[in-house]
Design a protein around this nucleic acid. Sequence first.
RNA 1: CGGGGUGUAGCUCAGUAUGGUUAGAGUACUUGGUUUGGGACCAAGGGGCCGAAGGUUCGAGUCCUUUCACCCCGACCA
Length: 561
Amino acid sequence: MRFSRTFIPTTKETPNDAVLKSHILLIRGGYISSVASGLYNFLPLGKIALDKIRAIVKEELDKAGCVEVDLSFVTPSELWEESGRLGKFGAELLKFRDRKENLFVLGPTHEEMMVNLVRNQITSYKQLPQNLYQIKTKFRDEARPRFGLMRGREFLMKDGYSFHETEEDMKREFELMEKTYSKIFSRLKLDFRVVDADSGAIGGSGSKEFHVLADSGEDTLVVCDSCDYGANIETAKRAEPEAPETVPEFEGDLRFHTPNLKSIEELSRFFRVEPYFLLKAVVKKAIFEDREEIVVFFLRGSDELEETKAVGTVGALELLDATEKEISEAGLIAGFIGNRNLEISHYFDNSLKGAKHLISGANEIDYHLIGTEVESGNFADLVLVKEGDRCSCGGNLSYKKGIEVGHIFQLGTKYSESMNANFLNREGKSTPFVMGTYGIGVSRILAGIVEQSGDELGIVLPESVAPYKFNILVSNSKNGEQMRFGEKIYEDLRSCGEDVILDDRKDRFGAKIKDAELIGFPYTIIVGKSLSDGEVEIFHRAEQRKEKISVLDLESRLENL
RNA sequence: CGGGGUGUAGCUCAGUAUGGUUAGAGUACUUGGUUUGGGACCAAGGGGCCGAAGGUUCGAGUCCUUUCACCCCGACCA
């Protein structure tokens, strides 16, 4: 490609509506342009890069035995009613009617469509397993699109769905997909982590996310420094912390006057007791589909509540902070809440199983109980894992920020049951498919790569993704000798099948090299004034290094890049 | 959906507290000339419904009302 003939609108200024590095650089580099909130055009460079990522995804999936399809983007609302997700997905679904007043949905994900495709077509265990995927535009009417390609409304996603005879076979495929995804992200030269994830409302026994590590990531990951444990903070586990050495000797629910002492800190100081031995009560209002309820979560005073875990524990749609009014209406006294004689729903964190020598609220104003115990109740993992907590391997846990680029899911029979998608098993019995579902955010990967490797000069892309591996920069395009030599390398590389672009624009050297740095061509061959001495330079973008080389050695040097 | 901010040339922004020539700069663009290794210089040009609608006024980019769009923080995010 000749630079002068393609369309690469680079800008010197950073666009006023971009904040994130990847967003700024992709726009400045002429990869994308914005259309409306959460909507982007892919310009020639962006399109090529996206296609290259897409090709890698496809290649690895096909190797793993997956089969590509392409389902219609516009999906009939009936399918969504059938699965029960029309209301649940809510405002994120972009709905509209056709001229006959039929309701349609722009696909945000395609479980329904895919189940609909295979049901009544795959009818026997002999046709299983099957793993179908597509790489296709999705649309989610996000409440707040942001960060450019990172969280757009329209985006390119690979979504795959597998169908199995048994749970075991689905798990086998799940593991295969984990390996396949890891290969894909490795080929894309991403620094990524596979972590345990919250299965969420969708259910299922296992879910893993693939995160590109980057400070700008929206998710917090808990990772171990000595084993390969990693988890989204929403589901992260830790080894039980060791109890402090000084154990308070209180026993037997002694009522103690504690006027106005409400916070963990105040109580800890007053009683000279580690927060570990205080019973912390967190009051929330749980919202269910048909009702609301005040719920109390008990933790050790040294711990904090992880809300996603709490939501899962009570099976609520969401948890809101309870207001003072709601707390007192529920018969609770803020600051003095304890587990004794507590009428309303409450849950204990697992770390409180069999806990003794505790100090808790007495459910009575200005009184606490000392030496109380937790004997029985509903226990669950509720705790927010903190940096510095111990991993079960003994290592140290710390936080990292991640950009979610992949998510694999053991779905089970949720959709096949609700949508009546069955097959005949070996016993001749009609059975719902056991399903897995696997997603990759293809356009988000492009943002993730730039986020992770972009530097102060601009974009840095791995060769596997870069639109052009070689950029031939003719320093002075009016200089016949330079231009002829540039043309020659250009033709040579092209005939070798390399992705190469010839910067034949009439700009000066400074402007062209700035663009080369911004766009991030892996190698820029600078044909300049030293050509008369028989030399050119190769600029290595990632290392920001210039290499002088004799024109005689150029060909063999380029072959080895 | 709550809170905040911004809309003026392709892009980045002045101008708006206090209304008043023909609305500015930089950059980008066109033409001519000089220049040619780190976003050149000189000269001459083209480019604006001042987000939209309504209002106040002799007069509105500027004041008032309504509205739309975009961005940020939060809520939300299979």
